[in-house]
Design a binder for these strands. Sequence first.
DNA 1: ATCCATTTTTCGAGCGTTCGCTCGAAAAAT
DNA 2: ATTTTTCGAGCGAACGCTCGAAAAATGGAT
Lengths: 226, 226
Amino acid sequence: MIDTAEFTTEALCRSMLDRHRDTIVVQKPDFAIRKLSVIVTAALNLSNSNGFQAMSLRDLSKASGVSMGGLYAYFDSKTTLLKMILEEVTGQVQRVLADPPQTMTIDPVDHLKWLIDTHIRLTEAMQPWFSFAFLEAKNFPPSERRTAVDSEILTESYFAAVIDRAVAEGRFRADVSPLLPSLIKPLLQEWYVKRSKYRRRGVSMETYIETVQDLVLNACLPERRS
Amino acid sequence: MIDTAEFTTEALCRSMLDRHRDTIVVQKPDFAIRKLSVIVTAALNLSNSNGFQAMSLRDLSKASGVSMGGLYAYFDSKTTLLKMILEEVTGQVQRVLADPPQTMTIDPVDHLKWLIDTHIRLTEAMQPWFSFAFLEAKNFPPSERRTAVDSEILTESYFAAVIDRAVAEGRFRADVSPLLPSLIKPLLQEWYVKRSKYRRRGVSMETYIETVQDLVLNACLPERRS
DNA sequence: ATCCATTTTTCGAGCGTTCGCTCGAAAAAT
DNA sequence: ATTTTTCGAGCGAACGCTCGAAAAATGGAT
């Protein structure tokens, strides 16, 4: 299970700062991280409310309490701010999904369940980040849009690989639809896209995870799951 | 099966014109429909490329060949244009899904399969419209956002009702997840959201429909489908 | 058919506003 | 005294939208 302490705003902003130490003007890391956290938090709030395009830097300045000029100590253009957040999300996805615990990789069925569980828990821990990265993506500039699409393709490939392996090992039916990996992804996105709806209806993350796992495994396993 | 002739751009624009005859300045219906088609087609193209907010009316003017002033003969604000398109989509969804052929309502399983089939075929026939209405929705003004959300809730309720009926009649397992109707919706949206991806991979609409139907029914039926 | 008077439709420069972004100076830290 | 950080008024560009005039279409009267 993922460690939520790795995904606090401050921890993520520390990672962002490391990756952009050359373009960020502010020298003292402690100051920089604290201020970057305030800026990013405000940026995610505003973007997820009305869209990234609709968020003006004056809005961001007012909401974060950092002056116009002050913002430009942390990024050299609005698109760079977008890129910084987006790359942080895609980087975490790759980092987390790429190395499952060894105990989970013995059985491909366990591995598949782990992928579903971990992906949903990751998006839960970084919900505003994921909403920003993948709901806004279609309005991003071409280069950044590509980054978001590539990340989705990579995620899908993890599911495709483990399902292929389960079929090859005879754990799954041979006629599992080749579309299945593509269909799993929107089920995972549904959780963070409609997060507030499920909160309102009292659906816990654990229940959601189990439901998706059951739905997927019912389509794969030779016999019905108990 | 739905009749694609009902969903040509011209037919849809005729419906839009009827609904806004009072605010549209142009008198002759033939002129109006032809020009409205050009405007709406360009608006959907531009919006679906870069987002509705990013589409300036100067862009729309250039792409449609209608002058700035000419555009305002068909709507009195950019938001009104948004509202006109959005209401056309939600109106068609309601009109089509609300009255299934009588032969399909006898058996709730047939009805469920019909809902999946028809919804996907409808979104295929009106793909740019659906992308506009539901992918851009989160950046709409509050009132229009509500219209889009209500339409999604209505769609979901159709699925919930027929599944409940199938459970009540003993056609479905009693322990079908109450989350299922919510999970069907993203599977249907996936088709028009990632339309180009499936075209590239050579996945036909019929294959996609069957795959979703199988996935859903496998989660519902007491025994595995053949 | 041809004309003119009237209506209908089309046009695009211009209005006020807001945008992303800059930069020289003030403030704070060292 | 020197460096580091913060500030916000101001720049040119682009935005949604308006409006008076040009162009096109219309409908008798000759």
